[in-house]
Nucleic acid binder design. Structure first.
Lengths: 334, 334
DNA sequence: TTGTACGCGTTATCAA
DNA sequence: TTGATAACGCGTACAA
């Protein structure tokens, strides 16, 4: 890599003159500026980013800690994050916690040595279940800005970007009751240990109870159990006339299973799930979804964090990104 | 952040002694080592990564350029990349080209100023279509190690990790012909501009022609057109008894569409698509898939690149990662 | 207008 | 066993 020193030597001028010339300082004559720029161009000179970072004590890099990236929600968030970061000339270092507390803590620890200016994080399932977040507090104690999104910890004081988990499921349930006249609505959940899962269940229950209906939650440990569990459940509870799924997979499975059991959709049963880019295309009839604006969540998170990085007087805030109910063939009024 | 200098001042010893003590140099007495370590622990000292990078001229960071991350193939590759990188104490900076040549070139340009030790890249669709890869060659000219995976450019000389695109589709087609006695096999493709898409079509055609059957490729511009295009096609060509999809979406759509048209699966028609983690769960009957080992591709890519980074005498190679045909309910012998 | 000197935080060489 | 000094590449205050 070409350095200032090399340019200086070749041009027989000092390093600082070269530096100033390249930064278009008014102190430098047009003539030398031109000479310097020409040679720099020719040798494809680029200021060494590491040296700049050491000098300015800013990395223009953000650490992004995700539980996983094969879940389309986090993939889309990452897309939004990358887009916004790139626009603002920030790089992102991505770490996956694999839903474990240990890897999450390790990543934070390793990057908190000056590698990044701040962090964006959605906490791992394990951290949330075991309520372990000393590793996150420790970062904040060291005055490194942190922003949490989606899976958020109430007790941690930092910027937060969250989804309207309660509200969106509440509205969806209410819609099924009021508009579609459904009376026996089942909720499928495999994330009830997570804050977001709890909120969704809460939203569902509140809507059901407000209408004096009975609630029922089918809890699953694993996405692979859905078929069997649903089969058994629907066999026993033949009066179920609507299903809400708390994730982007089981709603589609529910549609397939209901059809297999001879139910017509949406005549006999309505289905609403969570969904992303291609969720609707691959189900038949097309599933109605609660569409979380994952891309926007990523974008907003980056913008807010950068604001924090640049503004000494930044005030912490919590932003709620509303979801959108996208009706389709799996509900009556689609 | 605590620095060596601060520790030295507090302990009334020199910076270099502190540095050596922390690095367990044999030159330093046990006593001072203990004193230094204790204070370092107490003040949560961590060597500034940026300064180390400047000193050693190594970043221990790899630039990962992906076309997108919402496609599950690339998401799983990223998962493998992150896992392997993390195990080897490397960080990854992730950039998304958004399938455009411009963003791809920009990312390479911006990171080639010392920010990373090397690159892993799957070229953008646009770069591949327009055959523009000066920006990649330029990186290689500057002696920065580059590894390409999946979407690879023949004319670029570097390490490569690829999938057996030709072979896997060839085998799948042959299976349909020989084992399931299918005679009219349709291939759906929406990626025929890509190297991998071309290879898959080639594999399909070769198998078909070897058996003196006629080939037919339904080309789509967009995943959204599948339903209508397939509907029209199957209406006209009622003798189609098998469908292979070149991606992870349209196979599932094909199953749904075939059922809608009153065809029984797999009695009347077999379907094989490409697939990943959850692809089979969400289709009914479960789709048979060509499973690309995306995670492994990511892992292998990192390992090979790191080998290149550390080994002066590294020899360039091309590794082919075999796919696996996972039969399920959408094919007869599943 | 140009050059000198210093510092960012670390490590390595050499001297004490 | 410890310390002084230089160097990585850059930017900048200050001197010329």
């Amino acid at each position: 890599m070409t350095t200032l020193k090399e340019l200086a030597k070749l041009l027989n001028i000092s390093v600082s003159t070269v530096s100033k010339a390249l930064n278009d300082s008014h102190e430098i004559s047009e003539q030398t500026k031109i000479r310097v720029h020409e040679l720099a161009e020719k040798l494809n000179y680029k200021p060494n980013r590491i040296a700049q970072q050491l000098k300015t004590n800013k990395t223009k890099t953000i650490g992004v800690i995700l539980p996983t990236v094969t879940n389309p929600f986090f993939a889309e968030v990452l897309h939004g994050v990358e887009t916004a970061a790139s626009k603002n000339d920030y790089d992102i270092i991505v770490c996956l916690s694999e839903e474990t507390c240990a890897k999450e803590a390790r990543s934070l620890e390793l990057l908190s040595n000056g590698s990044v200016d701040g962090f964006i994080i959605a906490v791992a399932r394990e951290s949330q279940v075991k309520q372990q977040w000393d590793h996150i507090d420790s970062i904040i104690d060291r005055k490194i800005p942190v922003l949490m999104f989606d899976r958020v910890v109430k007790d941690i004081v930092c910027d937060k970007v969250i989804v309207d988990d309660f509200q969106s499921v509440y509205e969806a349930t209410k819609y099924l009751i009021e508009e579609e006249k459904r009376k026996n609505i089942l909720l499928i959940s495999n994330i009830e240990e997570l804050s977001v899962g709890k909120l969704r269940i809460k939203g569902y229950k509140q809507a059901v109870e407000e209408n004096n209906l009975t609630s029922d939650v089918l809890k699953l440990d694993n996405v692979d159990d859905v078929e069997e569990a649903l089969f058994n459940y629907l066999k026993k509870n033949k009066d179920i006339d609507a299903i809400i799924s708390n994730d982007h997979i089981t709603g589609i499975v529910a549609i397939n299973m209901a059809r297999k059991l001879g139910k017509e959709i949406p005549k006999d049963i309505s289905v609403i799930g969570f969904g992303y880019e291609n969720t609707q295309i691959i189900s038949s009839p097309k599933i109605s979804i609660i569409h979380q604006k994952a891309f926007e969540i990523g974008e907003i998170s980056i913008k807010l964090l950068i604001e924090n990085l640049n503004n000494e007087a930044h005030e912490l805030q919590t932003i709620i990104v509303p979801s959108e109910l996208k009706l389709s063939g799996s509900t009556k009024k689609a």
